[in-house]
Write a protein that binds this DNA or RNA. Structure first.
Length: 564
RNA sequence: CGGGGCGUAGCGCAGCCUGGUUUAGCGCGCAGCGUUCGGGACGCUGAGGUCGGUGGUUCAAAUCCACUCGCCCCGACCA
């Protein structure tokens, strides 16, 4: 491809919109352009990269026993109502009506469609297992698109769905996919961590995420320095240390004027935060919920949501709290009635705690559970934090951020049951099909590849997904043979089947080199009067600083070698 | 949806507070000509703007007011 004809221009300045690296570089390299929030056009360079990623994914899916197919993006809303996941997706579902006023959804994912299809097709255990996948555009009305391609509303995703007769079969499918995924990230030059995860709106039991470590990542990962334990904060557990508080003492009221937060309470009463009780208020499916947790801990909303089995959960507004007659800043579960109280199990690990007195400017000392208050549920709803102890080995937990570039779920039979996807087993009984699903966002993976492979000059494409392998960069000078040699070399290399991006523009060396660095093609080949004097061209890898001269008659061989 | 910010040429910005001297300006980019040519060269000439939209205030609005649309960032969601 000749740069003079390439659609898409490089830009020197960083667009103000972008503040993640991949977004900036994609824009500067002229690879993408935003149409509206969370919706992007892929210009030729980006599209080439995406197709490379897609092919890698396709190969690995095929190797893992997948069969590719294509499913409708336009899906009847009834199907979603049947599975009950219209509620789980809620606002995230793009919906529309046709001319007869039938409600449709733009597929945010395809479990329903594929399950309906497989249910209608599969009859016997002999038809299983099946692993079906599609690579296509999906739509989600994200609350907040961000970071360029990292989080968008219209995106190309590979989803594979596995159908097995039982849990053992699912395990096998699951493990094969995990391996296939490792291969994919490996080939794309994106190191990942396998992370235990919450299954979210998709539902199901076991779930793992593939996280590419990056500062711009939205996911926090808690991991153990000693053992293999690695989990998304949403799911991560940690050992809550016991706090020695001694034998329960009689409860006593103390006046605490102007004192509200845990920090204020603990410094005012001279107790450590882990000797206090924190009260937090949520609204779950329109009902106010009272949360109690030890003062040094934070509420993990995902855990809370799962514990409540609610579809909608948010912090209560101060007005809502006040309406229920609760005194903010001095609230406590002691004496609370008519409100559901959910407690983190940390409250059982300490005694003689400080809590609110449900009276203005008053707190209580020596509050003990269960002596002084009741709860409706006690479970783990605390957020694991770096510095906590590992739930598996007791080692120290640390935290990093990353981009979720893949997710695997053991769905089980939740959806197949709802949609009636069954098969006849060996004993002649009808049973729901055991399902798993495995997704990779291709555009996000592309962005993650940049997040992990760049320097201050630009992108450094891993060869397997680079839009071109060779950046041919002639430095023209009148009266020299540069042009002729470059043209010949371009023709020759292209004929040999090598992917060459040919900078045939009349630009100064600085412009050309900087663009080459920005575009990040693995190998730069410079031809100039200087190199021709030595009957050579110059080669430079994008990953290295050093250049080397290669004699003209060896070029083709060397380049074929290097870019194979 | 809550909080914050921003809409002026393809990109980055100034002008707005304190309406009129601006024919709306600067840099990059773009077009033409010439000189340059190993790390974003220079000169000259030139093209390009519904100042997000609507309504209002005013003799006069990019500038003030109201409404509205859009975009970005922080939180709840996810590949």
């Amino acid at each position: 491809m000749r740069i003079s004809q390439l659609f898409g221009k490089t830009q020197r300045e960083i667009p103000a919109e972008a503040d993640t690296i991949s977004h900036q570089l994609l824009l500067r390299a002229g690879m993408i352009r935003q149409l509206t929030s969370g919706v992007y056009s892929y210009l030729p360079l980006a599209w080439r990269v995406l197709k490379k990623i897609e092919n890698i994914v396709r190969e690995e899916m095929d190797n893992a026993g997948g069969q590719e197919l294509l499913l409708p993006a336009l899906q009847p809303l009834e199907l979603w109502q049947k599975s009950g996941r219209d509620l789980a997706f809620g606002q995230g579902l793009f919906t529309l009506s046709d001319r007869r006023d039938h409600k449709l959804a733009l597929g945010p994912t395809h479990e329903e469609v594929i399950t309906e299809l497989v249910g209608a097709t599969v009859q016997s255990y002999r038809d299983l297992p099946l692993r079906l996948y599609q690579i296509q555009t999906k739509f989600r009305d994200e609350p907040r698109p961000r970071g360029g391609l990292l989080r968008v509303r219209e995106f190309i995703m590979k989803d594979l769905y596995s159908f097995d007769i039982d849990a053992a079969g699912l395990d096998e499918s699951y493990n094969r996919m995990l391996q296939a995924y490792r291969n994919i990230y490996d080939r794309c030059g994106v190191p990942i961590r396998l992370v235990e995860a919450d299954s979210g709106a998709i539902g199901g039991k076991d779930s793992h995420e593939f996280i590419a470590v990056a500062e711009s990542g939205e996911d926090e990962v808690i991991y153990c320095d000693k053992c293999q334990y690695t989990a998304n904060v949403e799911k991560a557990q940690s050992v809550k240390e016991k706090v020695e508080g001694g034998e329960p003492l009689p409860r006593e009221e103390v006046s605490t004027p102007g004192i509200a937060t845990i920090e204020e309470v603990s410094s005012f009463l001279k107790v450590t935060p882990n000797r206090t009780l924190k009260a937090v208020f949520y609204v779950a499916d329109s009902k106010l919920i009272f949360i109690v947790i030890r003062g040094d801990l934070e509420v993990n909303e995902i855990k809370l949501k799962n514990a409540l089995g609610s579809t909608e959960l948010r912090l209560a507004t101060s007005a809502e709290v006040a309406e229920s007659g609760i005194i903010a800043g001095a609230a406590s579960p002691v004496g609370i009635k008519n409100i559901k109280v959910i407690a983190d199990d940390s409250i059982t690990s300490a005694t003689n705690l400080v809590a609110g007195a449900n009276k203005p400017a008053t707190h209580l000392r020596n509050v003990n559970y269960p002596r002084d208050f009741r709860t409706d549920l006690i479970t783990d709803i605390a957020k694991a934090q770096a510095g906590d102890s590992c739930p598996r080995c007791g080692g120290k937990l640390s935290s990093i951020y990353g981009i979720e570039v893949g997710h695997a779920f053991k769905l089980g039979t939740v959806i197949s049951q709802k949609l009636g996807a069954q098969f006849i087993d060996q004993s002649g009984l009808s049973r729901p099909i055991m399902m798993g699903c495995y997704g990779i966002g291709l555009g996000r993976l592309l962005a993650a590849a940049i997040e992990q492979n760049h320097d201050d000059k630009g992108i450094i494409w891993p060869a397997a997904i680079a839009p071109y392998q060779i950046h041919l960069c002639p430095l023209y000078r009148e009266g020299s043979k540069v042009s002729e040699v470059a043209e010949n070399l371009y023709t020759e290399l292209t004929t040999q089947g090598l992917e060459v991006l040919f900078d045939d523009r009349q630009e100064s060396p600085g412009v050309k080199f900087n663009d080459a660095d920005l575009l990040g093609i693995p190998l730069r080949v410079t031809i100039s009067p200087r190199t021709l004097e030595k009957n050579s061209i110059e080669m430079k890898k994008r990953t290295e600083k050093e250049t080397q001269l290669v004699p003209l008659d060896e070029i083709t061989e060397r380049l074929k070698e290097l870019s194979s």
